[in-house]
């Protein structure tokens, strides 16, 4: 089956891979924002994850340890954000931007000496005969394990937020920190945990870039993916399922415009390169207007610092 020379099965398969970094980072940021914290430092955390993951994987020879190292490195960076905004009550927007600046610089310093090295390969999950199903096999069953892990994380975050006590407390903290505090929850501690989770997820996304997407380390390798992740959280109106849709839509349009070019479609390239952003805005407008208005459920305390006065 072909549309304009493009095989949709192949397209879907590649957009699933292309979307993993922004999906993971956006999912982490979603949890952070659900707890009422706006961390604009996703790009900085992602690139720290990319460099730490790369260094760990190269040193140990294990991609799995690499991903863990990436998550850990970014989480440590996010700890700075947590300390500043939660303990020292600094402004979240400014701290997040500073975090990106710092992360970009630090990652480059750490990565010196790792340029031009290949990391160990992350394996494809052997799904045997499933991979050979025509069409579907190519779309669904020939990926590396991080692709499946990222989708599993979407389900996990959704389930935890919706069905567990932990999720309920997290949302309560994000809706009204004062009320949650009055009920006896440790607002600051819960928010710090959420920030660390967000950092770890951004780190996983970054590590996916340097270990699978591109397999290499170079300065500035995430090239703005963290900003896209931030956009997707708002686009998804803070719902995990929609984060998946948003990430796949964005990844899909990016991949599609390159595929259209490769297939020789006569399209104005310079306008195509802005199409992912324009379409995202358009979808956002449609969603936030009319009946969708109620569904824009931003956490009420988003971006506001909490200080227990009693």
């Amino acid at each position: 089956m072909d549309f304009g020379g493009i095989n949709p099965a192949v397209l879907i398969a590649s957009l699933m891979v292309a979307s993993v970094p922004i999906l993971l980072a956006a999912l982490g940021e979603l949890v952070v924002e659900k707890a009422g914290v706006l961390n604009l430092g996703v790009e900085g955390m992602m690139i720290m994850g990319a460099v730490c993951g790369f260094i760990t994987a190269v040193t140990t020879g294990s991609p799995l340890l690499g991903f863990l190292g990436g998550a850990l490195g970014a989480a440590v960076l996010s700890l700075i954000f947590a300390l500043l905004t939660q303990v020292l009550l600094a402004n979240q927007v400014a701290t997040g931007l500073a975090l990106t600046l710092f992360g970009l610089g630090l990652s480059s310093l750490l990565g010196q000496g790792y340029v031009g090295i290949k990391p160990p390969a992350t394996g494809v999950v052997p799904l045997g005969p499933l991979a050979d199903i025509p069409g579907l096999g190519r779309i669904l069953f020939r990926h590396d394990w991080m692709v499946y892990a990222s989708i599993a994380m979407v389900a996990a975050v959704w389930a935890v937020l919706r069905f567990t006590r932990m999720g309920l407390i997290l949302r309560a903290v994000g809706e009204s920190a004062d009320a949650a505090h009055a009920l006896g929850y440790k607002v600051t501690r819960i928010r710090i945990m959420a920030i660390l989770f967000g950092g770890a997820m951004a780190g996983l996304g970054g590590a996916y870039v340097s270990l699978v997407r591109v397999p290499q380390w170079t300065d500035g390798i995430t090239a703005g993916a963290g900003w896209i992740a931030l956009a997707i959280v708002v686009f998804a109106s803070w719902r995990p399922g929609r984060v998946l849709i948003g990430a796949y839509l964005f990844g899909g349009i990016t991949v599609l415009q390159l595929n259209l070019q490769a297939a020789g479609a006569r399209i104005p390239v310079e306008y195509l390169s802005m199409s992912p952003y324009l379409i995202t805005i358009l979808v956002l407008v449609i969603m936030s207007s009319g009946k969708g208005r109620a569904s824009l459920n931003a956490p009420a305390s988003l971006g506001r610092n909490f200080h227990a006065s009693r």
Partner: peptide, 27 residues
């Protein structure tokens, strides 16, 4: 010859996507 314009000198992820798109077109 198929040409894909990436509109960047350096964006590893986008370059990888461009290569992938070309390979999928039989390049």
């Amino acid at each position: 010859i198929s040409v894909v314009w990436a509109y960047t000198w350096f964006d590893p992820a986008k370059e990888a996507d461009a290569a992938k798109a070309l390979i999928e077109q039989g390049v």
